Amino acid sequence: MILIAMGVSGCGKTTIGEMLAERLHCDFADADSFHSQANKEKMHNGIPLTDEDRWPWLNAIRASIVEKQASGTVHVYACSALKRVYRDILRDGDKDVTFVYLKGTPELLRERIKTRKGHFFDPALLQSQLDTLEPPGPDEAIEVDIALSPEEIVDKVLQEVKAR
């Protein structure tokens, strides 16, 4: 089983992903670690990434997913996966890949980003991500409101995964 915590910056992908991995006794990987240095510099400088910037990044994450599945391990990733085409690349028709959409209001997201320290994401890019976001439907993801506590979110996700 592969879980991918997804959503725009500030929604809690890393926090929830790490908590899910802990509860599932498996490893966690943040998709940010798959970005090239050039992508990280663009985002740090407030320059939105293009699809051409994202293709190698998404393919690297998919390769990691395939590797984890080949070894038979459960794994949790955190990845924005803003567009359906991005999720299609990551899933590649694989029913064993489940997205967890962490949904929040723009106001809550802005507040969270404002208080973050040591992250390369320029807060001005949030609107660009919100504009790019193609929210997944119930056929694509488990949707959870980020206004819940992290523990409540993880409990809800694990209940949904078990029910599937």
Rank of each mutant, 00 (worst) to 15 (best):
M1I: 05
M1G: 05
A5H: 02
V8I: 07
S9C: 14
S9L: 03
G10D: 03
K13M: 07
T15E: 06
L20C: 11
R23W: 02
H25N: 12
H35M: 13
H35S: 14
Q37N: 15
Q37I: 13
N39S: 15
E41K: 15
M43K: 12
W55E: 12
N59D: 13
N59M: 11
N59R: 12
I61C: 00
S64I: 03
I65D: 00
V66Q: 11
K68G: 05
Q69H: 07
Q69Y: 04
S71R: 10
T73C: 11
A81K: 01
R84A: 11
R87T: 08
D88Q: 14
I89P: 06
I89D: 07
L90A: 06
K95G: 09
V100C: 06
V100P: 00
Y101T: 02
T105N: 09
P106H: 02
L108W: 09
R110M: 10
K114L: 13
R116G: 04
G118A: 12
H119M: 07
F120R: 09
P123S: 09
P123E: 09
A124P: 03
L125C: 09
L130I: 10
D131A: 14
D131N: 15
T132E: 04
T132L: 02
E134L: 12
G137L: 12
P138C: 12
D139G: 13
D139T: 13
I142H: 03
V144E: 05
D145W: 03
L148Q: 13
E152S: 09
I153T: 04
I153F: 01
D155A: 13
V157W: 07
L158H: 01
L158R: 00
A163M: 14
